[in-house]
Amino acid sequence: MQSHTHDLTFTGGEVQKRFLTWSEGEADREWACLQAIEAHAPGIAPRPLRRETVGGHPVVVMSRLPGDALGGAPLTPAQTASLGQTLRRLHGIPLDRVMASGIGERRLGPSTLRPALRGWLRAPEDLSACHDPALVRAGIDAAAAWLSSSDALPAPEIVSLGIADLNPANILWDGRTCRLVDFEDGGLTDPAYDLADHVEHIAGRLTGVFDAGTLLAAVGISDEGKDRFHAYRPLWAAFWLAMLLPGNGGFSRNPSGSTEAQARHLLGLLGQ
């Protein structure tokens, strides 16, 4: 099995995750996150077994977890409750222990995503491949204006370890428990920021996998965290609009009309 960043080999009770490059530090993040989880919240993610180098590529070997990947349908109440408990355990790992493991801010974290999006959405785009270029352009312009506003986003509270990429395919359900895989982008984060990322992930949002209100309740996020969650949602909606523009991989991988639907969704979050 291969993705754009790694390939997976399943052997008995082990999974060998071979990364295609060293350049983004994915293997280091994965290994450090799994070690921290195994030490302080065991059972919610694979056990880190060993690191290898195969054919010049970094490899993380981990235990194989039971269960099937979620996605394609809304979570059941039992799945939402279990996912909330799993995320609470992840977020509850003591911050000093995470930092002592040498783990830095998650990829596309609170300090880096906003400036990156400004650049991605400022570049001129040929939108002729879109069904409704005017709608997509309106979404781009609204996102760019919002990102430029000095009060667009609250200051994050970097207090926990996060998985970053909660594509529903990274949640394994064995009938009783949700466990998490794929920590190559994980790191220090604000739980509200990661929850906004999770809810806005295109793989879950288009099929209604996550219900924002029930997931927030299951995680037990504070009222202040809920405010930050709602403030961060347009940021991640803008990210997915950028990923769905012509020329990017998301444009060809997702159903026709997804770019327009994303622009409409973002405009709705911005009240436009």
Rank of each mutant, 00 (worst) to 15 (best):
P168L: 08
R176L: 12
L161H: 13
L153G: 01
A144R: 14
I202V: 15
W173M: 13
S148L: 05
I140R: 15
L135E: 12
A144D: 03
H201T: 10
N167R: 08
L172M: 10
D126A: 10
C178R: 06
S149N: 11
A129T: 03
S128W: 03
I163T: 09
A169H: 10
P154E: 01
A143R: 03
L153Y: 05
R176P: 00
L180A: 05
G187F: 06
A203Q: 11
R179E: 06
A192F: 02
L180R: 01
E184L: 08
L166R: 02
L121V: 04
R118H: 09
D132Y: 12
V159P: 01
F210G: 04
A196G: 14
R176W: 06
L215K: 09
T177H: 15
L117Q: 00
L195Y: 04
A134Q: 14
L206C: 08
V199T: 07
E157N: 09
G187C: 07
D190A: 02
D151S: 13
R205S: 12
P156C: 10
A155H: 02
P124Y: 10
L180C: 12
D151W: 01
E184F: 15
E184C: 11
L121S: 13
A123C: 10
A164K: 12
R205Y: 13
D185R: 11
G162K: 06
A192D: 02
A152R: 03
V136K: 12
V136E: 09
E200G: 07
D174W: 07
D197K: 11
A212E: 02
E184W: 09
F183C: 05
D185L: 15
C130N: 07
L180G: 14
A155C: 03
A169N: 10
D190N: 05
L161C: 11
A169T: 04
L161I: 04
L135Q: 13
G139D: 08
V159R: 15
D211Q: 14
L117R: 01
T177W: 13
P154L: 04
A123I: 06
G208D: 10
A129L: 14
E200V: 03
P154G: 04
D182E: 11
Y193R: 00
